[in-house]
Measured scan of single mutants.
Amino acid sequence: MIINNLKLIREKKKISQSELAALLEVSRQTINGIEKNKYNPSLQLALKIAYYLNTPLEDIFQ
């Protein structure tokens, strides 16, 4: 099972779900679904998340 630290990292960087969704060009519901482990992001989306949060991919999804 993948450990998902997206919410923790996003909140630590003081970025809202809506702000991150806008940067990634996805819906806020997509971010919410990823954070609640209801949706697994594509590799492309996971890499974009890591880029915009300036955090290694391995720290977000373990």
Rank of each mutant, 00 (worst) to 15 (best):
I31Y: 05
A50M: 05
E25R: 13
L47S: 09
L6P: 01
K48G: 06
F61I: 04
Y51K: 09
T55Q: 05
Y39M: 11
N40T: 15
Y52T: 07
N32Q: 15
L6C: 06
K7M: 06
K12R: 13
T30D: 05
R28M: 13
I60K: 00
P41G: 03
K38S: 10
I2L: 10
S27F: 03
T30M: 13
L47Q: 11
Y39E: 07
A21N: 02
G33M: 15
M1G: 12
Q17I: 12
L45A: 02
E58F: 08
E19D: 10
K7Y: 06
Y51R: 10
R28Y: 09
K7S: 08
T55A: 08
S42C: 07
I60V: 06
A22D: 12
N40R: 15
E11R: 08
I60Y: 02
S42L: 04
S42Q: 05
L53V: 03
T55V: 12
K14S: 11
L20I: 04
L8P: 07
S27L: 04
Q62R: 11
L23F: 13
L57T: 04
K13Y: 10
I31G: 01
I31W: 00
L24G: 02
A50F: 03
F61L: 04
E19L: 08
S18H: 10
T30I: 15
K13Q: 13
N4Q: 04
E11D: 08
K12G: 11
K36S: 13
E19H: 13
K12Q: 13
S18Y: 10
I9W: 07
K38H: 13
I34S: 01
N54L: 07
E58V: 09
I2N: 08
M1H: 13
L6N: 03
M1Q: 13
Y51V: 07
L20A: 00
K48F: 04
I3S: 11
L24V: 15
S16E: 05
L20R: 00
E25C: 14
L24A: 10
S42A: 06
A46E: 04
S27I: 03
L8I: 15
N54Q: 14
G33T: 08
N40P: 13
E35A: 03
L8F: 12
I34T: 02
Q62S: 12
T30L: 15
I3Q: 11
K14G: 15
L20M: 06
K48I: 04
L53K: 01
R10Y: 05
D59I: 11
E11P: 00
R28E: 14
F61S: 02
I2D: 06
K13I: 07
T30P: 02
T30Y: 15
K48S: 05
L6I: 09
I3Y: 08
P56E: 07
P41E: 03
L53T: 03
K13V: 07
N40W: 15
S18I: 13
Y52W: 09
N54A: 11
T55H: 06
S18G: 12
I49N: 00
L57R: 03
N40D: 08
Q44L: 10
S27A: 06
I3R: 14
G33D: 15
R28I: 15
Y51I: 08
I2M: 13
E11Y: 05
Y52R: 04
K38I: 14
Y52D: 01
A46P: 04
E11W: 06
Q44G: 12
K14D: 08
E25D: 13
L20C: 03
I2P: 10
P56T: 08
G33E: 15
K7G: 08
Q62V: 13
I9L: 09
I3C: 14
N40E: 14
R28W: 15
Q44I: 12
L43W: 13
L20D: 00
L57A: 05
T55G: 03
K13G: 04
P41F: 07
Q17E: 04
I60D: 00
A50L: 03
Q29Y: 09
I49K: 00
N4K: 03
S18V: 13
Y39V: 14
N54F: 05
M1W: 10
A21T: 04
K36Y: 07
A22Y: 09
K48N: 06
L24R: 00
I3M: 11
A21W: 02
N32I: 15
K13E: 06
K14F: 08
E35F: 02
L24Y: 01
Q62I: 12
K13C: 12
Q44R: 13
R28N: 07
Q17S: 05
Q17W: 05
I31R: 00
E11G: 07
I49E: 00
K7Q: 12
N40V: 15
V26T: 06
K13H: 11
G33H: 14
A21P: 00
T30C: 15
G33C: 15
I60R: 01
N37P: 01
F61H: 02
I2Q: 09
K14C: 11
I34Q: 02
I9K: 01
L23M: 15
L6T: 03
I3W: 07
Q29D: 14
A22G: 11
T55R: 03
I2S: 10
I31C: 02
V26S: 01
K14A: 11
N5K: 07
Q29C: 12
R28K: 13
E58G: 11
L8R: 14
N54M: 09
N5D: 04
T30A: 07
E19Q: 14
S42N: 08
Q62W: 12
L47Y: 08
S18A: 14
Y39S: 06
Y39D: 05
P41R: 02
K12C: 12
E25Q: 15
E35M: 04
L53H: 02
T55F: 06
L24Q: 00
E58P: 08
E11N: 08
K36T: 15
A46Q: 15
A22P: 00
T55M: 10
S27C: 06
L24N: 00
N37E: 06
A21S: 06
L57N: 02
N32M: 13
I2K: 11
L24K: 01
K36G: 09
S16L: 05
N5M: 06
Q62L: 11
G33P: 01
M1I: 15
Q29S: 13
Q17A: 08
N5L: 07
D59N: 09
I60E: 01
S42M: 04
V26A: 03
A46H: 01
I34D: 01
Y51L: 08
A50Q: 04
Q29M: 09
N4R: 03
S16G: 07
L8E: 15
L24W: 00
N40Y: 15
M1T: 13
K48R: 10
E19M: 12
I9E: 04
L20Q: 00
L43P: 13
L53I: 03
L53R: 00
E11F: 06
L47A: 09
N4M: 05
I9N: 03
R10W: 07
L53S: 00
